[in-house]
Design a protein around this nucleic acid. Sequence first.
DNA 1: CTTACTTTTTGACATAGGTCAAAGGAAAAT
DNA 2: ATTTTCCTTTGACCTATGTCAAAAAGTAAG
Lengths: 186, 186
Amino acid sequence: MLTDFLTSLVPFSHDELNDILSHFDKEYVEKNQVLIKEGQICDKLYFVEQGIGRSYYLKEDGKEITQWFFGVGNFMSSADSFFQQSPSFYYLEILEDSILYSISKEKMDLLLVKYHKMEKLVRLLSIEMLTKIVHKLNAVQFQTASERYDYMLTEFPDISHRVPLGHIASYLGMTQETLSRIRRND
Amino acid sequence: MLTDFLTSLVPFSHDELNDILSHFDKEYVEKNQVLIKEGQICDKLYFVEQGIGRSYYLKEDGKEITQWFFGVGNFMSSADSFFQQSPSFYYLEILEDSILYSISKEKMDLLLVKYHKMEKLVRLLSIEMLTKIVHKLNAVQFQTASERYDYMLTEFPDISHRVPLGHIASYLGMTQETLSRIRRND
DNA sequence: CTTACTTTTTGACATAGGTCAAAGGAAAAT
DNA sequence: ATTTTCCTTTGACCTATGTCAAAAAGTAAG
């Protein structure tokens, strides 16, 4: 899975790929486990082999706001915090028993220096993420609550019915009452 | 300006820097000029040496929605379109007589292949942009109209009073009437 | 200076979606 | 199984912001 994902973006040689993969650790993480808390420095980048994760933050009033969902076949991290080794604004949480591959910042830096192609990989991933976030931004900013839910269904079709409704509502910038009413009317 | 910006992110040698800079063209662009239209492939990445630009798109009803402002010292492009050479969703427009440095995709690719450091530069830029957009997303999604305007003032302090109010209103996801009322109450 | 055009402000009114409170359902723990 | 806790739905009411329309202010053109 991770192998396929990497080679689909950059044509690594067999040896390169093995070297790169050897820098990752496989982790089995249970539902509800929090990988990173606000204020911590996120030292790892994760690849979701199986399961679902999300990032969220707390508003002043203590409400959790889901910032992103990470489904199978995606990298998961608190991107700023990881790349700039600054305190994370977000929590990272696992929502289902999951299998992750993780790599530390230190090892990632080694790979980035060693392989030009690795820089390229991370650049491509960053731009891809950028595109997705801009897409969400446009959805959130100018669409009605119900259109935003439609966006959710296309962006995360498999996730929409596996996580608590409140998580999705806050991700979409609405209350869970509103989302519940939207779902009622299909 | 461009020189300083590049070296502040990655420690290029003198020779590298000269080689890189030689791939850029200096352009003088007049106010209201449209650099890229929706549907075109954005072939250039611009650096704003002087002036202001914005990206925007048209909603179904024909209204312009400002997507981003590009002030002095920033790279400006339709990022997806440039890096993936796909049709642009956005228009790029210059809002004041400006001085830009531009580089074509072709030349950028040469540099990305030639210099490992160049990949790094673009990676850093992408992550920085990602951070900014996420910041806007959080502002837009959960703040009141007036708080969003405050966000605008901190993110683009110099720009806020140099562009038409309607551009800012659409950038912040509100009507210009609302923004006008907010400004009245300081 | 006067005319024409664009941008901003103001007012009256409408509405999507928020808040608060309570009742059902589902799932987890004992 | 029964209790406890969490998650979802529903109802009544409220408010921030949108819509529409017109006046006022600012800018460009002749």
